[in-house]
């Protein structure tokens, strides 16, 4: 899944960042790297942008950018069980 699909309050681990050049640099500088845990904090009134907690800071990203970040959702042990 990509970061824009992650629900509010959910956490995920970054797998790959697909953006390129200057934009990729900006993402990396913010600390969005493979292995980084991110959490969706809230969405703006019109649904875009969405704010994420990244390395203790809250950063708002527009949808097009979040779509370029591949993540894997983190589940707690209980959730894993209930999902089978």
């Amino acid at each position: 899944m990509t970061l824009n699909q992650l629900g509010v309050g959910r956490k995920a681990t970054v797998k790959k960042v697909y953006s390129e050049s200057a934009e990729r640099r900006r993402m990396l500088d913010l600390g969005i790297l493979p292995g980084t845990v991110v959490e969706t904090v809230m969405s703006s009134p019109l649904g875009d942008p969405v704010a994420y907690r990244i390395r203790s800071a809250v950063v708002a990203l527009r949808r097009e950018q979040a779509e370029l970040i591949e993540v894997q959702e983190n589940f707690t042990a209980d959730e894993m069980e209930s999902r089978g």
Partner: peptide, 9 residues
């Protein structure tokens, strides 16, 4: 101090 990792970067 609350965002130490990013500052250390």
């Amino acid at each position: 101090a609350n965002r130490l990792e990013r500052g250390l970067h």
